[in-house]
């Protein structure tokens, strides 16, 4: 058995062995901030989400530590009601019995952070659902499609030049392991969609609106890239 386990790393594709979370490329001070729950500002939103959960969600879903454990690791998932893939924030936003929350509103970010926090440390586990495959393929196409006045695709930075520097910042490998996360530049919590919009305006492309299907498709593709990596929500990034 031990022999087989020793062989296991050799069987994984080379790219998998080199996958890095954005956490690995951060300064030690920022890593310490994320590790310490009393210094991680993202935990303020988790606390807020916990209060919202107790008010609205707990009556059906009970203790989130049990009912929501591992849920965030499986998103984006297939939504039978709309016949389309949906991400975690979208699922929470459309939920019945609760007031509808706008994308990127503090309430939705807090609830998403709280739910995703229940899966912290668990491996990202994208569902093997054939209905998701076309959307995931579109996400992969969007990832490699050049866009904006700078005519750059996601892949040109995050695959070809990952680990190198864009001005003072290290270009990460596009593994969304800690969303929603506290970004020091934002001075607040933000979603993966906000991060994607930041990249799009960065290459002077017109970003999609919040909640657009294109974002969910890219999220699907990125979740597959990061499959098996540990969730860090709420992460801290520079």
């Amino acid at each position: 058995m031990r022999f087989l386990l020793a062989l296991l790393p050799l069987c994984l594709p080379a790219a998998a062995a080199e996958r890095r979370s954005g956490f690995d490329d951060m300064a030690p001070q920022t890593q310490a901030m994320q590790r310490d729950d009393s210094a991680n500002p993202g935990m303020l939103w988790v606390l807020e989400g916990e209060a919202l959960w107790a008010r609205g969600c707990a009556s059906c879903h009970g203790d989130a530590a049990l009912s929501m454990r591992g849920v965030a690791a499986r998103y984006p998932a297939w939504d039978a009601a709309t016949g389309a893939p949906i991400d975690l924030a979208g699922r929470i936003a459309q939920h019945q019995g609760a007031p509808r929350l706008a994308r990127e509103s503090q309430g939705l970010l807090a609830l998403t952070a709280f739910v995703a926090h229940q899966s912290r440390g668990l491996p990202i586990n994208p569902p093997e659902d054939a209905r998701l495959a076309p959307a995931r393929a579109r996400g992969a196409a969007l990832y490699t499609q050049r866009r904006g006045q700078l005519d750059l695709s996601c892949a040109q930075c995050h695959d070809d030049h990952a680990g190198r520097r864009l001005a003072g910042s290290t270009i990460p490998q596009a593994h969304p392991t800690g969303y929603p996360l506290y970004r020091l530049e934002w001075q607040g919590l933000g979603s993966l969609q906000r991060r994607l919009r930041g990249c799009m305006t960065g290459v002077r492309a017109e970003p999609f609106a919040y909640g657009a299907a294109e974002y969910v498709e890219i999220e699907l593709f990125l979740a597959r890239r990061a499959a098996g990596m540990a969730l860090e929500t709420p992460a801290v990034r520079p």
Binding site: A39, N40, P41, L47
Partner: peptide, 27 residues
């Protein structure tokens, strides 16, 4: 506002305690 506090609950006389506070505020 939400607050994160790290304050020891028990100590011996003469102990130097580290107090850490984080408060939610837009500034």
């Amino acid at each position: 506002a939400r607050v994160l506090l790290n304050i020891p609950a028990r100590a011996y006389p003469g102990d130097i305690l580290v107090i850490r506070t984080l408060i939610q505020h837009v500034m």
